[in-house]
């Protein structure tokens, strides 16, 4: 009873080839296309990358951090890839490595000089993706006075803006409280315009 018709190796290889092609059609074409259709119909914004527009022009994705240069902006975490969309990734440095110690020391000194306070952990370290869109609440609050000065706003107004854009843990316990820098900066810009 054991496999009269599926025993020889060459027959098996031919069957394997046919099977691979059939399954490629199902799993490599039909399945992704079906998910794509669901995206188009039900979750168009998410499927396209949660793009953020200013005056109708795409300026980024609310999911991706970006480089903000200039005193008037809140800035994101250090990025090993300088927020490039083509080379995501982290520094891969261990805490014990001399390069990492040096980098952390420089960031700590810079932060202290700019804000007169000890830097929170997220401001001292590069993220895993290099595209982390968010910073800790403490980090955003520490930056508020500098941002207020540069934009000619009251510290109080900017603090309130940070509070409005603070996102708590999902369901109260999943993940970390955080502030999405891109959204915060866009709101800041609307305020000063």
């Amino acid at each position: 009873m054991a496999s009269r018709n599926t025993s020889s190796t060459s027959r098996q290889l031919v069957a394997a080839l046919r099977m691979m092609l059939v399954l490629t059609g199902l799993l490599g074409v039909v399945y992704p296309a079906a998910v794509w259709v669901v995206g188009r119909v039900g979750f168009d914004d998410q499927a396209r990358g949660s793009l953020v527009r200013r005056d109708g022009v795409v300026v980024g994705s609310s999911l991706l951090g970006q480089n903000f240069t200039g005193e008037r902006w809140f800035t994101g975490r250090p990025s090993a890839s300088n927020y490039s969309g083509d080379t995501s990734g982290g520094s891969n440095l261990a805490a014990s490595s001399p390069d990492q110690r040096k980098a952390v020391r420089e960031r700590a000194d810079g932060y202290d000089a700019a804000y007169g306070t000890n830097a929170p952990a997220d401001a001292l370290t590069a993220s895993g993706s290099g595209l982390d869109p968010q910073i800790s609440v403490a980090n955003a609050r520490a930056q508020a006075p500098r941002v207020a000065r540069a934009n000619g706003l009251t510290e109080q107004a900017v603090r309130r803006l940070v509070d409005e854009h603070t996102q708590g843990r999902t369901l109260g316990f999943l993940g970390e409280p955080r502030v999405t820098v891109l959204e915060l900066n866009l709101a800041l810009e609307r305020m000063t315009r």
Binding site: R77, G90, S91, N92, L93, A95, Q100, V104, A108, N118, P120, A121, D122, L124, T125, A126, S127, G128, S129, D132, P133, Q134, I135, S136, L174, G175, E176, R178
Partner: peptide
Amino acid sequence: AASAATGSMEGKEQRFGVWA
């Protein structure tokens, strides 16, 4: 390790934090 200054956040994302 998070009790060190760097908070072991190197290579980790803010939205997940250390635990997740």
